[in-house]
Nucleic acid binder design. Structure first.
Lengths: 282, 282
DNA sequence: CAAGAAATGGAATAAAAATTCTAAAGATAA
DNA sequence: TTATCTTTAGAATTTTTATTCCATTTCTTG
């Protein structure tokens, strides 16, 4: 029942690179079938990530049980544990972030230390930024700027959780000399605040799950009046998408019950500056 | 036993992009739970690729059987078949990731500029986060939480550029059941909004260069009335520091004329959650 | 608003997969 | 060579996971 090859002091590799190093180091001391598996695993990491014990065993020319022995000889609980390393590698560009978040979350049962709270939210923000690098296409982004630059006045729509983003747009556009009106729903006057908008203006609507109905409703109303709508939202299934002429996808990462807003703000700044510059050109 | 939604002539999507297109096309005709799953799947493709039926179902907030129905409604044999599409995508995506970035950079004229704008602000945000990891000391952070947790009501002070941050605090504290009042200076009533604060409350003041005088003034007034002040600011020379019982340093990076707010938001979330948890303990 | 159809939740079941166990083969060293 | 220890193959078992089924709820539509 004891693990033979992994001494107690050796840490079990938790990422692909360490695992690779360990396998190479042990190359000469491994028994035949295990060496054969090590070679196969490094040669076909995807297969190990996705395959089943039986399938991999067949391809590698060994018995299924050999995979389990292999994993255990490296210190893992079983094959499934080892497979996790191979999956993490494929999973995301920054697998360690995910892992760190998971660890932080798991410790939640006990009292989360305040430092790890901060760390968690910081990590979530960093992840959001990385994701946005992929999810926002330059063409869409340019079209959004184009639309906003043509507008006479930009109406800013964003309630509840994303209200800070539209409030920031109001600040930034103001500083940049772009006429913008923040729909703040004061005294529930949202619809009236938007009533003066015409086809020559534009609406910049922001909403993430759970979508605040008022934002979706006002955006839809604007669209019916042929006012161009630019949307910032988190999924193609957002109710904003049907109303929008251009929409940008920002999927913020969360930590605990709260979602980051970092990517949204970075996007907001870029949009605001881009719009102002585009206007200056014309 | 017949497949309902997929007509015989429709080919079953065999790659991720076609699947995505199909889901988007069906968006409006899908029943609630299936739509929910479609959104989840496009949002968390890696999770679908690697997860188990039970695990994904839980994360997506549906029953396991719904995943199977979902897959069948698209024409697949079962969930496993659908999952294969998600797995294939990961296999392919991994190698050409660098390539995609390069293409993104080389894309034509106008887009290059706007893309680099976005990149610039994204980078600034990431830098801010990294800096904050070092600049905020866990002890100070804990003291800030301690101070806020003891308060009866938390008064939120932040004008102009950082108003979004205090607005977010108002949202977060509200959701967490912590009594907080947002000083929004409506009709210039800032001083009056703060007038009801007593020693048993606390002020959470936020200000970065160029320091908005009103924030510094109100914070100083609060300090004179012995109201505990927690400050978030960017330097030891900030006028807030003299009024503050605890202060946290956040130096945001800038790009062009605009400064990131990412670190401030991450800090805000951590502070809010930490405060709520600390209260729950007591 | 009532009848029928579609969609859903949840437990029951079937299928697939991982793991364990044991006998046998293969090494190693006296 | 033989005794002993390690490694292996393959079947048996356990565990995990996907799928099916049906009672209940929720939408449609006449």
């Amino acid at each position: 029942m004891e693990e033979r090859s992994a001494s107690v002091t050796d840490a079990i590799p938790e990422d692909f690179e360490s695992l690779r190093a360990l396998l190479l180091a042990r190359r000469d001391t491994m028994p035949k079938r295990l060496k054969q598996l090590a070679a196969f695993a490094l040669d076909h990491p995807e297969e190990v990530a996705f395959g089943t014990v039986a399938g991999i065993a067949e391809h590698a020319g060994v018995q299924p049980s050999t995979l389990v022995r292999f994993a255990k000889s490296l210190g893992y609980d079983g094959f499934s544990h080892l497979q996790q390393i191979f999956r993490d590698r494929l999973r995301e560009r920054f697998p360690d972030y995910r892992e760190r978040l998971r660890v932080l979350r798991d410790s939640e049962g006990a009292h989360v230390h305040s430092a790890s709270l901060l760390e968690g939210f910081t990590d979530a923000a960093a992840i959001s930024l990385d994701r946005m690098r992929e999810s926002v296409r330059p063409e869409e982004f340019s079209r959004a700027i184009e639309t906003l630059a043509k507008a006479d006045t930009i109406y800013l729509l964003g309630a509840r959780r994303v209200f800070p983003v539209s409030a920031y747009f109001a600040y930034a556009f103001g500083k940049l000399g772009v006429r913008a009106i923040l729909i703040d729903h004061i005294a529930q006057l949202g619809p009236e605040q938007l009533a003066t908008a015409t086809e020559r203006d534009a609406v910049l609507a922001i909403s993430f799950t759970p979508y605040s109905p008022v934002t979706a409703d006002l955006a839809a109303a604007a669209a019916r009046k042929n006012i161009p709508v630019v949307a910032i939202t988190d999924s193609a299934f957002s109710p904003l998408v049907t109303s929008a002429d251009v929409w940008l996808e920002v999927a913020e990462a969360d930590f605990g019950a709260f979602r980051s807003l970092s990517a949204s703000f970075a996007l907001a700044m870029a949009l605001a500056v881009g719009t102002a510059e585009r206007r200056a050109e014309a």
